[in-house]
Design a protein around this nucleic acid. Sequence first.
DNA 1: CGGCGATGGCTAACTCGATTAGCTTTCCGG
DNA 2: CCGGAAAGCTAATCGAGTTAGCCATCGCCG
Lengths: 206, 206
Amino acid sequence: MPRAGLDPATVIEAGAALADEVGFEKLTMGLLAERLGVRTPSLYKHVDSIEALRRGITLQAMRDFRDAVARVAVGRAGPGAVRAFADAYRRWAVAHPGRYSSVVRAPDAGDEDEEHRRLSNEVMQIMYDVLAGFELRGTHAVDAARVLRSSLHGFATVEAAGGFGLPRDVDRSYRFLIDTIIAGLQNVPVDPAEDASSREFHPTSG
Amino acid sequence: MPRAGLDPATVIEAGAALADEVGFEKLTMGLLAERLGVRTPSLYKHVDSIEALRRGITLQAMRDFRDAVARVAVGRAGPGAVRAFADAYRRWAVAHPGRYSSVVRAPDAGDEDEEHRRLSNEVMQIMYDVLAGFELRGTHAVDAARVLRSSLHGFATVEAAGGFGLPRDVDRSYRFLIDTIIAGLQNVPVDPAEDASSREFHPTSG
DNA sequence: CGGCGATGGCTAACTCGATTAGCTTTCCGG
DNA sequence: CCGGAAAGCTAATCGAGTTAGCCATCGCCG
């Protein structure tokens, strides 16, 4: 019998694609093996465990996600950049539901290696960049990035979970969300006590 | 040997408490049985399956969550109500991480029975109520509720996943999030084309 | 061209969690 | 006090993950 010609990258890529179809949590070694035309134990020649497979899918997805949002945001800042970023964010999440789950899940203990942290920070940095141009000094730069992150992530998660009852309106609600965030960041009252703590700014720790 | 004296409600309550300790997804029949001083198969005298157990925990948690947020929001509207609601929301999520996961997870196929839908709608209704007082007509009432829901859910999820690097600042960021949402809802531009579609308002379909 | 070591795939077998079957014991109403 | 329903238990099955160990294939080197 001819060999399947697998290697770790192929297995992880196929796992990511399969996760998009059946859901990241439903991804199984047996299912992936079947998809690759191979018996389950054979996969262990390429990945150490299902945990390692998930980790690999997560990292691959994070790189792809970072590239997708970086592409539209590069060199831009302010409301237009936030809109473009938010659109790319949701578009990617909707196009890759399984990968998106993998990106945002709570990493299992020890799962968060150096590369994971680095990629997280790169995405946060892109958020800081698109938010430049709003008058956010000091700690509020961190806060604003968290606002953007939480809101977009929450929307994507609820949408992916089928939590919105009326599918027709979801695009419009997303636009409203972005409009609200932008208007909010332009009008949020500045607490003078907070503004004094500018020194605490830590751009890579979002 | 004396009987343990279990019944479905006890088992579900213990399961919810255990989920808060070990995480909803790590909850196992064996673990719960051990906690209750009973052998694993004995649990099946009280719950049909682990899926049914999860469903029971979810419904119990949704009721408790609804009560917690309803209590602080009753009869109030506008920014103060949004603040109180958001505080109760996050407080509950932080205090009951396993239950919170169960409330917001994507329900498995068929899992979403009538009571689940009813409880979802009740929480959405509370959101509509606290958002009354902002000048949101027509479809934007739905949009605003989705904004609030997405943002609070996203923040709670990222926080629960340990996604924020600087734990000290999380309270402040949450306040900033709420301030931003409130300022945003007070200043978001109204699109005249949207405002015309007021008839489409469906308050229970969030 | 032949050989050979590394590699990739396979079968068999084990573990663990969920679940079922069927037995036994306890409890409670009559 | 008695009989059956209810609640626990042991034994056993099933599926997913994983390991061990066997064998075929590939690619490279003499």
